[in-house]
Design a protein around this nucleic acid. Structure first.
Length: 832
RNA sequence: GCCCCUAUAGCCCAACUGGCAGAGGCAGUGGACUUAAAAUCCAUCAAGUCUGGGUUCGAAUCCCAGUGGGGGCACCA
């Protein structure tokens, strides 16, 4: 029998149980079928930038509530943990301190593991993975090769986002709306480079459509962000014959109905098309274009993206033919047209597109109205050339030949049909989503498994030769200089074919770390598998992640990439699901005094010191109780002492229980039993609706009523007290596992309370003996009646109408209508 | 500029999805215990739900308009 301290001593309790769990590994699960249902609960794995911080503390406490909940509902729960341990911060920090990034990274991982052990999320510690282990990243390379074989990984030369501080390219997704790098904060510039891409655009439609499956299971905000990012746009492709060019130029438009009003064409200055079009023009025009291109390239994304800046452009001295009316229209270059969207060229309809109108007015180009748009009062809008406002609304087609008289919608359809008939255009869907640029010119990442021949040929490293391991950092200059440090590892980079003697150079770039995290949840099925990235049988066994938990900052990047790779794996037949995360909980952030915590601002709440001062349970309880999981928590509003007090009160109850384990609860005090069973009935719903804060509140309430029962009610020996306290222990386990384990032990149980299934609520204890019904007259509560719970509606109404207060309140007026809604309210409406 | 979310005691938050505004906590106040303090315990105080309209027997909840706060998108043809 354990010596029990007089007072709630969280340190002693924590130390005791941490050792027990370390030895017992209670949450390791196997891939063998136990016959129990299964849940896969996953927290977004941490990046080892140092010790855990308060953000981790919150996120992992939320995830653990769900993991522990499902376990207590009789499920086998896969709840693994790993580390997203490749990436720039490690490398930058390593450069700063002159240590090996590997050493720095693994030291941090060790520290975070240590902290996790104390914080006690119910992880399966047998499945730990680190993405920077060769055993892991070899499978990144394997995935790369799978994509490469299918044309889904390819190299192209194009203008890319360049981070001048980190000296590497960035994916579009990593450039913030203000044109800065999400990593370094530097202003991103454009650079023309040959880079590796994953062809995510092939999956655009599926990535969009399948969001419908997640409706109600992911936050609407996240779904909206994904939809916006994919940016589906319906319209038509139109071929414009260009004088002096064999091939017509293709443009994409969402407004084929306005084709008759296309009076000029604008191409992106940085597109291949622009370069080609100026190849044969006069030197003067060539020079003007060249100057313009330079000017465009010099702009930052911020400048280029500010929507209200004045239009710029140059005439290219080339002409196209409008396919519907044979008009000869000038071709301009203008930087409001983007090279990598659609075909890098637009047909400009200044009367009905604001951007085109601004361009036309600036350069004095014709504005032809082809749609009569009416204002709210039914009057025609003024001519766009005069008002400066394009008529973008619906109306009746004019000046458009066969389309005249049609509405916008009908004209769109008709024009597409006409174009298709003539072979000069077709209906077409375009997406804002671009291919995923995965090359990085940095050291601490997965080497790209491609060999380059002297003749420019490419050869994939054979799968059986994987992994291509990183060369030792020692001796390499990791400082960013625009080219990957790997290229300088000559011995590593040079490969000779043993058969032909032909010499190859390894691709010097490493992969974006989002590749690592795009499939790690699959690796958890069989993390030690040496023959394949994961075991398909185990994947079938556990299925997709039932519950994913993480910050909303990954709403686009990580989730989109993971969905993409999941679909690829599905197509390759390795898994039988095509969405990775069935439900998603986005927890909020932990703030201090209304702002994000940061070292530089000096408003840091240290995870380690909170853990030391208050213990894991009080810290976790505080984070859970502070508010709904999705909301931000301001640490200034949080009272950890309050949580400690609650846990201590619960613990004390366990010591006060005087009945023996196994006592027959049915003999217990009915009132207390009713409270306990209401809790048993309500908590599952609350947890499944993510109302964890309410669960804590309900447990506080239960502790209060039980305390009262012990001190001034049925007394500590009543079986209902044991029933209540055992229930409290089992439920407190969701967020305060040490206290729960200690209580369970004090209550005389040998079992691990985290693995004990909750009792079902007894429905006979859920019905109240009597009900209090409010009686309203004309919307105002005039009386309250205490009635037997099984009273009929008729009787209740009769009693209400007979009550003195009600009679007085109704007076002489006529009763028009009555509503009886037991057990809550009776409403009487009167007239007169 | 466009879209989404949100507003309830001094503070953090509940309210069975249209039915008596209060479950829980923090802070406050009074008391018990103590030589005193801390801890603990008991008791207690508190808003009519951001504003203005509407629907309804009945609105914190639904609708419209506005205000404050948060977030997303923003030359994507």
């Amino acid at each position: 029998m354990t010596e029990q301290a007089e007072n709630y001593d969280f340190r002693a309790i924590q130390e005791k149980w941490q050792q027990v769990w370390e030895a017992d590994r209670p949450f390791d699960v196997s891939n063998e079928d136990t016959g129990r249902p299964k849940k896969y609960v996953l927290d977004m794995f941490p990046y080892p930038s140092g010790d855990l911080h308060m953000g981790h503390a919150e996120a992992f406490s939320m995830g653990d509530v769900l993991a522990r909940y499902w376990r207590s509902r009789g499920y086998d729960v896969l709840h693994p943990i790993g580390w997203d341990s490749f990436g720039l911060p490690a490398e930058n920090a390593a450069i700063k301190r002159g240590v090996d990034p590997k050493e720095w990274t693994y030291n941090n991982i060790a520290q975070q593991k240590e902290s996790f052990k104390a914080y006690a999320p119910s992880f399966d510690w047998s499945r730990v993975l680190h993405t920077s282990d060769p055993e892991y990243y070899r499978w990144n390379q394997w995935i790369f090769l799978q994509l490469f074989e299918r044309g889904l990984a390819y190299r192209k030369d194009s203008w890319v986002n360049w981070d001048p501080v980190d000296q590497t390219v960035l994916a579009n997704e990593q450039v913030l709306p203000d044109g800065t790098s999400e990593r370094s904060g530097a202003i991103v510039v454009k650079k023309k480079l040959t880079q590796w891409y994953f062809k995510i655009t092939d999956y655009a439609e599926r990535l969009l459509q399948d969001l419908d499956k997640l409706e109600g299971k992911w936050a609407p905000k996240v779904l909206q962000m994904q939809r916006n990012w994919i940016g589906r746009s319906e319209g038509a492709e139109v071929d414009f014959v260009v004088e002096g060019r064999d091939e017509p130029v293709r443009v994409f438009t969402t407004r084929p109905d306005t084709l008759h009003g296309a009076t000029f064409m604008v191409v992106a200055p940085d597109s291949d098309l622009a370069a080609e079009l100026v190849a044969d023009v006069s030197d003067e025009v060539k020079q003007r274009f060249a100057d313009y291109l330079v000017q465009t390239q010099k702009q930052t994304e911020i400048e280029r993206q500010s929507a209200d800046r004045e239009k710029t452009g140059v005439f290219l001295d080339r002409f196209a033919i409008n396919p519907v009316n044979g008009e000869r229209i000038p071709i301009w270059a203008g930087d409001y047209v983007l090279a990598d969207y659609g075909h890098g060229a637009v047909m400009s309809v200044p009367a009905h597109d604001q951007r085109d109108l601004e361009f036309a007015l600036k350069f004095d180009l014709p504005v032809v109205q082809v749609l009569e748009v009416l204002d709210e009062d039914g009057n025609p809008l003024g001519h766009p050339a005069e008002t400066g406002v394009a008529a973008t609304g619906d109306g009746e087609l004019i000046n458009s030949g066969e389309l005249n008289g049609l509405s916008k919608g009908d004209a769109v359809k008709k024009q597409i049909a006409l174009l298709e008939e003539a072979g000069t255009g077709r209906g077409k869907v375009t997406y804002r989503l671009r291919d995923w640029l995965i090359s990085r010119q940095r050291y601490w990442g997965t080497p790209i498994p491609i060999l380059h021949g002297a003749d420019g040929s490419m050869r994939p490293v054979p799968a059986e030769q994987l992994p291509v391991t990183l060369p030792d950092a020692a001796g390499l200059d990791l400082k960013p200089k625009g080219a990957s440090p790997l290229g300088a590892a000559t011995e590593w980079a040079t490969v000779t074919d043993p058969e032909t003697g032909e010499e190859f150079t390894r691709d010097p770039d490493t992969m974006d770390t989002f590749v690592d995290s795009s499939w790690y949840f699959l690796r958890f099925y069989s993390p030690q598998d040496e023959t394949q990235p994961f075991d398909p049988a185990a994947a079938k066994f556990w299925g997709p992640v039932d519950q994913y938990v993480g910050g909303v900052e990954h709403a686009i990047l990580h989730l989109l990439y993971a969905r993409f790779i999941t679909k690829v794996m599905f197509d390759l037949g390795y898994i039988d699901f095509d969405e990775p995360f069935t439900t998603l909980l986005n927890q909020g952030m932990v703030l201090l005094d209304g702002s994000k915590m940061s070292k530089s601002k000096g408003n840091l709440v240290e995870f380690a010191s909170e853990l030391r001062d208050h213990g894991a349970d009080a810290l976790r309880t505080s984070l859970i109780f502070a508010g709904p999981p999705e909301d931000d928590i301001d640490w200034a509003d949080v009272s950890v002492q309050g949580s400690s007090k609650f846990l201590a009160r619960a613990w004390r109850l366990a010591r006060d229980v005087e009945s023996e384990p196994g006592v027959d609860f049915a003999a217990g005090n009915r009132e207390l039993r009713q409270a306990t069973h209401r809790l048993l009935a309500d908590v599952p719903q609350l947890v499944e609706q993510y109302k964890f804060n309410v669960v804590v509140a309900r447990l506080m309430e239960q502790v209060n009523v039980t305390r009262k029962a012990v001190d001034s009610g049925c007394g500590a020996a009543d079986p209902a007290v044991r029933e209540s306290v055992e229930t409290i222990a089992l439920m407190i386990n969701l967020f305060a596992p040490y206290t729960a384990a200690e209580m369970w032990d004090i209550l005389g149980h040998e079992s691990n309370c985290a693995l004990v299934e909750w009792r079902e609520a007894d429905s006979s204890l859920l019905v109240a003996d009597e009900i209090t019904v409010a009686v309203q007259v004309d919307g105002k509560v005039r009386d309250r009646l205490v009635l037997p719970a099984d009273v009929s509606e008729e009787d209740a109404l009769a009693l209400a109408l007979d009550a003195d207060r009600i009679k007085k309140s109704v007076g002489e007026r006529e009763i028009v209508k009555t509503f009886v809604r037991l057990p809550r309210i009776i409403s009487i409406a009167t007239k007169g």
